[in-house]
């Protein structure tokens, strides 16, 4: 009675052990599963490759815009260099940090690089307000320093930033109620195609300009000074936005390049696994047929 009941269980156990086992038992998978996974990796590779191509074409345009805007921004800052303008030191006035990031992700660590730089600045000088341009840095900074954020802008980074964008942002910033001793625009500086550095540029307040040591070299009416400040702010913003945009495209190109490479590696790995498993299945079937034939001959 007991032996008869135990027999089917025994047979089932024998059948399990006879089934072909993949070379590495840890990632045991049937042929179908491996095939499905291969297909999905191929699709991902296609997507990342396309994104890389799109980013490379955008990159050339963005870089051209960057070199032009950098020239533009530097020219605008020559005035302050000649006047030897310095930010007003210390006191109780606040500093405003403008973060120039963008809305889109999938471009490596450039957004978090900016956020880290801003956090470092906040540790050094906690009396700061933050204006965030772009959704990505907003998400990161609102988690750690939400109380410091006063404004945020979205919808940037679809295309190369225009001067109109910079002007509108500068307008809204100058409408802020606070009186700021200096405005730091943090952006990603384009060093070369693979390295970017979060750097601040200074946009000065009126008092800072008026109290600069070499101020008398220029003939400026007091009323015009406010205009100069606003204009210089939007110039610097434009520069920061354009350079940040170029960095983002370049970083995205690199990230997608790496992703496609990794996908390629995975595809070869899974292809080999697939072939091995297939062979193991065939060998197993052959063994079954041969043993079956040998058994029936007797």
């Amino acid at each position: 009675m007991l032996s008869r009941a135990a027999r089917p269980a025994l047979r089932a156990g024998a059948a399990v052990s006879a089934r072909p086992v993949a070379p590495n038992a840890a990632t045991f998978a049937t042929l179908r599963e491996i095939e499905d996974r291969l297909k999905s990796i191929r699709n991902i590779e296609k997507i990342t490759k396309t994104m890389k191509i799109v980013a490379s074409t955008k990159l050339t345009r963005a870089q051209r815009a960057m070199t032009e805007s950098r020239q533009y921004g530097m020219t605008s800052n020559t005035v302050f260099e000649n006047a030897e303008t310095k930010p007003i030191e210390g006191e109780d006035k606040k500093t405003l940090i403008v973060v120039a990031s963008s809305d889109k992700g999938l471009c490596g660590g450039i957004h978090s690089g900016l956020s880290k730089c801003v956090r470092r600045m906040l540790v050094a000088n906690p009396n700061c307000d933050i204006v965030v341009v772009g959704e990505k840095c907003k998400a990161q900074l609102s988690r750690s320093n939400g109380r410091n954020v006063v404004l945020n802008f979205g919808g940037i980074g679809k295309d190369i930033p225009t001067f109109t964008d910079a002007q509108a942002i500068a307008d809204q910033i100058s409408l802020l109620p606070g009186d700021y001793a200096s405005i730091q625009i943090v952006y990603n500086k384009f060093i070369n195609a693979t390295s970017y550095e979060a750097t601040p540029i200074e946009a000065f307040s009126e008092e800072a300009i008026a109290s600069s040591p070499n101020f008398s070299a220029f003939e400026i009416d007091d009323e015009v000074l406010a205009n100069l400040r606003e204009y210089a702010l939007s110039n610097s913003l434009f520069w920061a936005l354009a350079e940040g945009h170029a960095c983002e495209q370049s970083a995205r190109r690199n990230a997608m390049d790496n992703a496609s490479k990794n996908a390629g590696d995975m595809i070869t790995k899974y292809q080999i696994l697939f072939n091995r498993t297939r062979q193991a299945v065939i060998t197993g079937e052959l063994v079954e047929i041969i043993t079956g034939a040998a058994a029936s001959e007797e």
Binding site: K138, R147, V149, N152, G154, G155, T162, T164, A168, Q172
Partner: peptide, 22 residues
């Protein structure tokens, strides 16, 4: 080059306000 469709929001005490057209 003259188009601009940014949105912005004012923040108050760590909370984001409504997104508005700039």
């Amino acid at each position: 080059r003259g188009e601009m469709e940014l949105r912005f929001a004012k923040w108050n005490n760590g909370k984001q306000g409504d997104m508005k057209s700039l």
